[in-house]
């Protein structure tokens, strides 16, 4: 599957199944990773929620948009949901193409587009509370974290 939302750990090596085209000269295998620090606060862990059936459709739509703009040979997006610890991979994006320039450009554009329209949300959990992140904004802040209903 090129477009996937899963609560299982993401393994970039699994994307190698898409790499068998002889015209490929460049492979971008991008990973978005949970960072320790966010907006000046120390993140304990993140919790991702998704509207999974729509998310995979929107990923496929982004795939069509990317292929219409750049001569790439393949494109895949996997997003993880559920609880993710610092250092774990939340997002995988694979772009393959004959030459590197279009692969880099397509990947950067696609990641921006994913963050803009794919229906996935994260909740930051700190040691003294938690909040959904919506766009660039913290909302529905709750304290303490233990009171979170998920």
């Amino acid at each position: 599957m090129h477009y996937r939302v899963t609560d299982e750990a993401l393994d970039p090596r699994e994307l190698e199944r898409f790499l068998d085209k002889p015209e490929n000269g460049a492979v971008i295998n991008f990973q978005g990773v949970v960072r320790r620090q966010s907006r000046g606060r120390i993140v304990d862990y993140l919790e991702y929620d998704a509207y999974a059936p729509m998310a995979t459709k929107v990923m496929a739509q982004i795939g069509e948009e990317v292929k219409a703009r750049w001569p790439i040979t393949d494109f895949a997006v996997w997003h993880r949901t559920g609880r993710l610890e610092v250092g774990e991979t939340s997002l995988l994006v694979l772009v393959t193409s004959p030459h590197r320039k279009e692969a880099f450009e397509a990947c950067a554009w696609a990641v921006d587009r994913i963050k803009e329209i794919v229906p996935v949300w994260k909740r930051e959990v700190w040691d003294d509370g938690s909040s959904w992140v919506e766009g660039d904004t913290l909302v529905s802040q709750r304290e303490p974290a233990g009171a979170a209903g998920g």
Binding site: Y48, L91, V111, D112, I114, V118, W121, T137
Partner: peptide, 9 residues
């Protein structure tokens, strides 16, 4: 408003 991916992006 959605917030997928990671902040590093």
């Amino acid at each position: 408003p959605v917030s997928g991916g990671s902040d590093a992006l």
